[in-house]
Simulated scan of single mutants.
Amino acid sequence: MNPADEILDIVDENDEVVGQAPRGEATARRLRHRCVFIEARDPEGRIFVHRRTPTKLVFPSHHDMFVGGVVGAGEACDDAALREAEEELGVPGLPRPERLFTFLYESAEHTWWSYVYRLRCELPVRPQAEEVAWHTFLTDAELERRLPEWTWVPDGLETYHRLRAFRAGEAGSAA
């Protein structure tokens, strides 16, 4: 199936389903839908970072520090997170990603409810060639150094900053 033909649930500002539309139409008409973002770390704690293929419908050839994607019509977000992680990392049988938080992403071109997860990937990755043009694992410090140097997907960059704030809140509440 062409990714543009995938049917998505269209949701309102409260994340309630109000209809359905093909992905291409949802993107073209800025219809709000749902996406999952999974931070995948290797056994050493390094973050999976990749460059998207030039054929991607949204943000082609941009770098990203998350794997993930759209949630299909009627699909549970937790199921979509596992599916997307297994597909993009090329690793079947992963543990279910842990949901951390949700937020509404909005830009002039796009709007979606963003479900943010974390996952520890103990197995070697074999990224999906249709999704991932290049990949590596970076330490947090290495990733921070690359932020001003590389072109990042804007939703992933916003998610990354929100994840850092979330972690700072977790650390502050544990003290």
Rank of each mutant, 00 (worst) to 15 (best):
F101S: 11
R83E: 06
R51A: 05
E106Q: 04
H63K: 15
P92Q: 12
V91D: 15
V67D: 00
S107I: 09
F66M: 12
F66I: 06
G74A: 00
A73T: 13
R96I: 02
R96F: 02
P60C: 07
D78H: 10
M65H: 13
T53A: 04
P54W: 14
F103L: 14
R96G: 09
E88I: 03
E87K: 07
P95T: 06
Y105E: 03
A76C: 00
V67L: 05
V70S: 07
V70M: 08
V67C: 14
V58L: 12
F48E: 00
A80D: 00
G74H: 07
L57P: 01
E75G: 06
P92K: 13
L82H: 03
A73K: 13
G90K: 13
V58H: 04
F101L: 04
F59R: 01
E86C: 10
A85W: 11
T102Q: 14
F48K: 07
A73Q: 12
P92M: 03
G69S: 11
V49H: 11
E86I: 00
T53C: 15
L89I: 00
E84N: 09
V71R: 01
D78I: 03
F48T: 01
G74D: 01
D78L: 06
V70F: 06
G68Q: 00
A76S: 05
H50R: 12
V67K: 08
V70D: 07
R99I: 04
G69F: 03
M65P: 12
G69I: 05
V91P: 13
L100T: 08
P95M: 11
G69L: 02
V71D: 04
R51V: 03
K56D: 11
F101M: 07
K56I: 07
A73R: 10
E106N: 03
L57W: 01
F103D: 03
P95W: 08
K56N: 09
V58N: 02
V71A: 08
R52H: 15
G74V: 04
V91S: 15
E75S: 05
G90M: 06
A80L: 07
S61M: 03
L57F: 02
F59I: 00
G72R: 10
E98L: 02
P95D: 02
V49T: 15
D64K: 08
R52G: 03
G74I: 00
L100K: 10
V71Q: 00
P95A: 11
R51T: 05
H50W: 14
H50P: 15
